[in-house]
Design a protein around this nucleic acid. Structure first.
Lengths: 361, 361
DNA sequence: TCTCGCTATGTTTACGCAAACATCTTGGAA
DNA sequence: TTCCAAGATGTTTGCGTAAACATAGCGAGA
């Protein structure tokens, strides 16, 4: 029912096909070209091009004739040809080590939306092995793929290790990096969020706030930790030692076990919701009431966090804004505007639920 | 240092350039072309092409000379030109309505990995508004973007509504659809997973298993529900009415409240982990012990599920395999092999944790 | 009436690459 | 020694598009 319709245009290819798929060139039954449309409409190909690009200097009737021909033939401009001619690819690359984190995913979602609204497609460049070799491979691939700009989503220490150098004329935006990276940066205001969380616990009357940190190699984690520490110090409190997890619930669980055994611990700020969840599990197992004996605050605001037991007080990140602003910045750069070198910070929001309360006296 | 090298070939363009960045064509300071490399190496461009494509019939010394020249000039092949010439784009499109679901994101991750290993890039086609217009817009964009194949990740009823018709010669694979869609399908073996979950509860001694279903429009949800029902019937049990959520924790919570008030309910199978989580929260609030009074099983196995309170017994989906197999199928099709019309089912695995136990007598 | 100047349209060309074909070299068989 | 086969390399060509450059047509002002 759908296999005998192949004889539409060409006779140049009339004799091949039947044999075997050959090297791989065969199946590209190309669609109608600008020339086919021109022939059908009885105009020159240049006129078709003008219509296709929305130029105004085409007479109404001619234009309609061309449009009809396009529709009839199902014409679609060939991006490859366009890119070759114009040197632009209308594509934005996203370099990332993993999609599997909640934040990255949401950010990517926003990036894809914003990019597609601006007429750009998004090409994924996954990097799974953070070694020099792999990253430079990705760099190469980037060049090959000829994107017009890139968004780099990963923790900047990997960037450093990787010794990645993007083509100097390639617009780039970095997410979750340090400000000194040389690229414009867009990120959640980590410091603000951590301050909100810490202050919330302090305001409830806790004398001390313990911290479950993210991996020290992560700039997000560093910023949250620094801000937590500074907030305590501003309140005249010496910060207790930090226990570092790796963002996973499991690491949060282990650290929660440790903290939970210490009766002095009444307030915990975890660097993300998953570690907070793990810690809550540990506290449950130890029989420590939340928030009766121990209060806990997370960071991220996962969709699930509202249904954790108890529902988790946390800091909401606006990943959507991060993604959107990244693209805006990138588009600016691509438009040739001065390289925007500032660090855009996206505000956070404290979401108070049931995992925090005043300490028992 | 790199701005006075423009007199390379033409004189037709000799006088432009200096003025202003103009419309937007400017910044594409194109890299070296195959011709530049050829000149530098003192060979013909065709020889460079041969080296670039790994053809064997080039003498070792020549090859090295070309390679050196490539490295020195930082040459990278231009994909657009290659695509234009060959009719292939070395790119796979992924059509999806939302990235924000756990499964989709894991699947996408696997797709990106598998595709890049095969030398393909991945282009995202986000669809946020499931109306006919939007989808057909996406279809058009697809054509424009000239991908060599597409993976469609969304619930198939949207496909139906959208009345999407992919170009008939465009290889496609559908995930989470019904087998009759006309496209090869790859999906988790939903029926098996639901059977595992239901049977697990039955085996523990529960006389009845209630079900929190996903939205009826989702094929995954349908399959899970059907299989749950069949499993009960095979055990000689009449299935109770199904309560349908929308996959969210909130909907699980609402349904959990309802089920929890019914003292007859001792075993629940939720169609995903998030609804299971919501239901558990409801049960906690109602003071019903898990698993003492009520056992509950989820579906998905989120990373977090192991730290839910109590840790959730659930059915693990192998999203990675789904993604990988999709790409494998697509590559097969693109290689011109017979259209693989079967439905590939990826096995599931029951992960028993602490949310299930034998019913109290 | 003629010419200038604008708009609508057509023609040529090059973007970078790689098939297809042409040519040159080399070594071995007759 | 002559000639040919096979491999190495060069030349031509066209993929689809859109700038750059022609040309044709038509109205307005002198």
């Amino acid at each position: 029912m759908q296999e005998d319709s192949g004889n539409r245009t060409a006779q140049a290819t009339a004799s091949n096909g039947a044999r075997k798929p050959a090297s791989g060139t065969s199946r590209a039954s190309r669609g109608p070209s600008i020339g086919d449309v021109a022939k059908a409409a009885g105009v020159s190909s240049q006129t078709v091009s003008r219509v296709s690009n929305g130029l105004t200097n085409v007479e109404e009737t001619t234009k309609n004739r061309v449009l009809d021909a396009m529709k009839q033939l199902g014409y679609r401009p060939n991006r490859a040809a366009r890119a070759l001619k114009s040197g632009q690819f209308k594509s934005i690359g996203v370099i990332m080590f993993t999609l599997s984190s909640f934040g990255n995913m949401r950010t990517l979602d926003a990036i894809a939306t914003a990019a597609s609204q601006a007429g750009y497609s998004v090409t994924l460049i996954p990097l799974h092995d953070p070694t020099t070799g792999t990253v430079s491979g990705a760099y190469h691939r980037l060049r090959e793929q000829e994107v017009d700009g890139v968004v780099i989503i990963f923790e900047a220490h990997l960037l450093d290790h990787a010794d990645i150098t993007l083509p100097e004329d390639l617009p780039a935006v970095v997410i979750d990096s340090n400000p000194g990276s040389g690229y414009p940066m867009v990120d959640t205001d980590q410091a603000e969020g951590a301050r909100f969380a810490t202050k919330h616990l302090l305001d409830l009357g806790h004398q001390q706030v313990w911290h479950i940190g993210g991996p020290p190699s992560s700039f997000s984690a560093q910023h949250r930790e620094e801000s937590w520490k500074r907030t305590l110090e501003d309140a005249g409190i010496d910060a207790p030692p930090v226990l570092h997890g790796d963002w996973s619930t499991e690491s949060g669980y282990q650290i929660g076990l440790e903290l939970g055994r210490n009766p002095d611990v009444t307030a915990i700020f975890a660097a993300n919701d998953q570690m907070a969840l793990g810690a809550m599990r540990a506290l449950h197992e130890l029989g420590r009431a939340i928030p009766g004996e121990v209060s806990i605050v997370g960071f991220d605001d996962l969709e699930e966090s509202t249904s954790f037991w108890p529902p988790l007080t946390t800091v909401r990140q606006d990943f959507h804004a991060v993604g959107r602003l990244s693209i805006e910045n990138l588009l600016q750069q691509m438009a040739g505007n001065s390289p925007v070198n500032d660090a855009t910070k996206v505000p956070t929001q404290l979401v108070v639920r049931k995992s925090t309360a005043a300490p028992a006296k």
